[in-house]
Design a protein around this nucleic acid. Structure first.
Lengths: 177, 177
DNA sequence: TATTTATCTCAAAATAAATTGAACCTACCA
DNA sequence: TGGTAGGTTCAATTTATTTTGAGATAAATA
């Protein structure tokens, strides 16, 4: 079989967007499902999933065409994933920016925990102090109970912070070693 | 000041639903915020929050009136929280069922992780096998890459399962002991 | 410099999730 | 044995989130 015009049989070429094969479809679904548990948008998960199964970096065009996404979703999704550190840009001889998945669990989990989870716990300390202050204005027995609850919440928060580094260390180590 | 008709000055009485005080409001808000991170409904978090700050068990009436909830939300919320083990019923000399918060972090976290998080990972194993099977039908180089990705996902899932028991043990221990 | 191509922004539309409340059970009690 | 308080269920509504797409911007190309 002769090749014509297209540079090489294996290179997909600029305007070649084949439909998703079963491996791609299922992998993307896997990430969409995971995303749901973690409170992430399905369209963003699709993008990450496609990049994750792709042997080569992809430009935005690719997810727009192959995932049927709008330009807006693709752009928002990519910038979110970059910000999260789940995706990186790759230099390619093309005007378009190409992206690839960052596939190290340690990196992903660590950034996710820090940016999405921990960030939301940060300001709880201030709130707890406010609650304690208000609690002192209550009647003696009510104050006692409330202050006890605050103490409990503070210990929860301490416990949680204590655990994170351990968690990250465990995620980083390979295969239980 | 004389008491009349009401049994005792300190007992809230059947139809007494004072508005939330600042301690209650702030505590409830704390749980609502936490719930958002964990993907839980705000109305359910409100119920848990109110029970958490209440020195005595409360019947459904209480959250309906004091939190401005519909009967439906209260009922759904309570049954969800019971199912999750975040709330328990308390025997009280009253036809109405009274509830109190289960406030041990270890219990809460363990049940939450198991029911909400782990349950969603369970069936990913089957999907990974399907992906591997499909991958073998691809061209040699594509198959190699895809199978490698599957291997990676399997190791993620293994890592995650390995970590859970450690996590729970850490959450259960007090104050870093 | 004009034109084309890639990407971004954000208000509007579409979709999904949470909440309500009417209808319906089921004990209890008068 | 009929009335009522407490509780549940679920379709309809409300509210929140996600996605879209019509411009705007900017960089590369002609």
């Amino acid at each position: 079989m002769k090749q014509n015009s297209m540079p090489a049989g294996t290179a997909p070429g600029r305007n070649h967007f084949p439909p998703l094969n079963p491996v791609e479809r299922e992998t993307i679904q896997l990430f969409v499902q995971l995303a749901r548990v973690l409170g992430q948008r399905p369209s963003f998960a699709e993008i990450y999933g496609l990049l994750f199964v792709s042997p080569r970096p992809l430009p935005q065009d690719d997810f727009i065409k192959r995932l049927n996404l709008s330009k807006g979703s693709a752009s928002q999704g990519i910038s979110y994933l970059l910000e999260l550190g789940a995706v990186r840009t790759v230099a390619v001889d093309d005007r378009r920016v190409h992206y690839e998945a960052v596939a190290e669990l340690r990196n992903l989990a660590s950034r996710f925990l820090r940016q999405q989870v921990l960030a939301n716990f940060e300001d709880s300390g201030a709130r707890l102090d406010r609650i304690a202050a208000e609690a002192k204005k209550l009647s003696a027995s009510e104050a006692e109970f409330a202050l006890n609850r605050v103490k409990m919440l503070k210990s929860w928060s301490k416990n949680t912070r204590r655990i994170l580094p351990v968690l990250l260390a465990l995620l980083g180590s390979r295969n239980g070693k």
